[in-house]
Design a protein around this nucleic acid. Structure first.
Lengths: 198, 198
DNA sequence: AGCAGAAATTATCTTTTGTTAACGTGATTT
DNA sequence: AAATCACGTTAACAAAAGATAATTTCTGCT
C-alpha cells in the first residue's frame, strides 16, 4: 500500500505544533507525481528545484563517473524526503541522476514555491528544518559507516537495519552504495554465508 | 590572524537581506570560546546543544570504536560551522568527540537560545537554513567521494582542494578520515611520489 | 642540545578488493 | 520455444589494504 499522505500531515503537526489549518496552503502547492520503474525523476544538468516526499517506491541517486560507470550515492524509500540537492543547496545544475527503481509515488513541491510559502507563513519553517536535519543525520550516519566499518560490516549493518530494502534492490546498486564492486559484494555474501553455516 | 567576526556578519547580511539591526540580539547571545590544542570541545555523552562558528583553528570530530580505535569523521576549520549533531538533530547524547587540533577560537551560541531567538525573529531563519545546508552539502560531497573514488583518489582530491589543511593535520587523522589506516596512507603517498618522479 | 614520546615509514605476511572474463540463471521478448 | 539480456556468481590473477612489528624521523620539552 505505501505510506499515505496522512502520515506526512501528522508528522508536520507534531513538528512544532503547526496547526492543520496553516498547512492548507502548503498542501495546495503540492502535487502527486507517479514514476514508473526505471523512470528518471531528475537528470544530470537539471536546474529545477524540487522537494518531494516519497509515498511509495524507491529512488536511487547516482553519479556517472568519467569512465561511464555509475556510482550509487544513496537510496530513498517511502517515508523519506528527496531533494534536488545541487539545485537547492548550491544553485547549481544537478550532478546526480535520480531514478525510480520501482513504480513510485511522490508528493512533490517546487522549492521556490515552498520558499515563498515559508516567507508568508514562517510558522511552518520547522518543516524545512525537519527535512534538512533528517537528510543531514542520514548523511552523517553514512559517513560514520564509511570511516568506522569495513565493506562487509557496512553490508551487515545495512541488512540488519533495512533488510527489506536490500531485498528490493539489485545487488549491484547496494554494492556501489557500499563503495565496492558487485563482484566484491558477491564474495562478501559468500563469506557471510559460509561463516553462518559453520 | 584567522577570520574575523565581520566576515560572519557580512555573510549573514547577504543571506536573505537580514538587516544588521536585526542581528544584534543574535550576536548578544554568542560568546567567544578559546580552546587550546588538544582540548576537547564536546565529549561523548554530552547533551549540550551547541552551534559554533570557527574563527580560527581546526576541530576534529571522531568516534571511538569498540576496539578503542579512533575514526575521524571530519575536520572543520576557520570559516566553517560546527554543531553537536546528535544533541541538536536527534536530541540524543553525543556519540562523537570534538577536539581542537590547534589553538582554536569559536563564536558559540547555545542552540536552544538560537531556537528561541529565531522564534522571536523569524527573519533570521535563513541563518539556520544556511548552516544546515552547508553542512549537508559537505556531507554529501564526502559520500560522493567515498562511492566514486579510491582512497588514493580521495587523498589527491583532498590535497588538491585543501592542501593547507592537510599540512596542518597529522597524517593519521587524514588517513582515518579517508577510511584507511595510517600505514596505508603512507604507502599511498609513496606511490604518488614515485609516480610523480618518473 | 639532548631526551622522550609521538608520528611516519618500512618490512613482512595475510586478507580483501579490483579487474576481466567466463558461466549460470531467471525474466522478458519475439 | 528460442533467443536475448541483465544479473549474480565464480575463477584467476594483479593490486591494494589490513595487521603487526621494527625502525626512522619528527616534535616538544626540559
Amino acid at each position: 500500500m505505501g505510506i499515505s499522505i496522512e502520515v506526512l500531515q501528522h508528522l508536520l503537526q507534531q513538528l512544532n505544533g503547526v496547526p492543520p489549518a496553516d498547512m492548507a496552503p502548503l498542501f495546495a502547492a503540492t502535487r502527486h507525481v507517479k514514476l514508473e520503474a526505471g523512470e528518471t525523476y531528475i537528470r544530470e544538468g537539471d536546474t529545477t528545484r524540487k522537494l518531494a516526499y516519497l509515498e511509495q517506491g524507491i529512488i536511487r541517486a547516482y553519479a556517472v563517473r568519467n569512465n561511464g560507470e555509475e556510482a550509487t550515492l544513496f537510496l530513498r524509500w517511502e517515508g523519506q524526503f528527496i531533494a534536488s540537492h545541487d539545485a537547492i543547496i548550491r544553485q547549481q545544475p544537478a550532478r546526480f541522476i535520480y531514478r525510480a527503481l520501482e513504480d513510485t509515488v511522490l508528493l512533490e513541491i517546487n522549492y521556490d514555491q515552498l520558499d515563498q510559502l515559508l516567507k508568508e507563513h514562517p510558522r511552518m519553517e520547522p518543516l524545512r528544518n525537519y527535512f534538512l536535519q533528517k537528510m543531514l543525520a542520514e548523511a552523517l550516519d553514512t559517513i560514520e559507516a564509511f570511516v568506522t566499518l569495513s565493506p562487509e560490516e557496512r553490508y551487515l549493518q545495512l541488512l540488519d537495519s533495512r533488510a527489506d530494502i536490500v531485498n528490493r534492490v539489485p545487488d549491484k546498486y547496494i554494492a556501489s552504495m557500499l563503495g565496492v564492486t558487485p563482484v566484491s559484494l558477491s564474495r562478501i555474501r559468500k563469506r557471510i554465508h559460509s561463516r553462518g553455516r559453520k
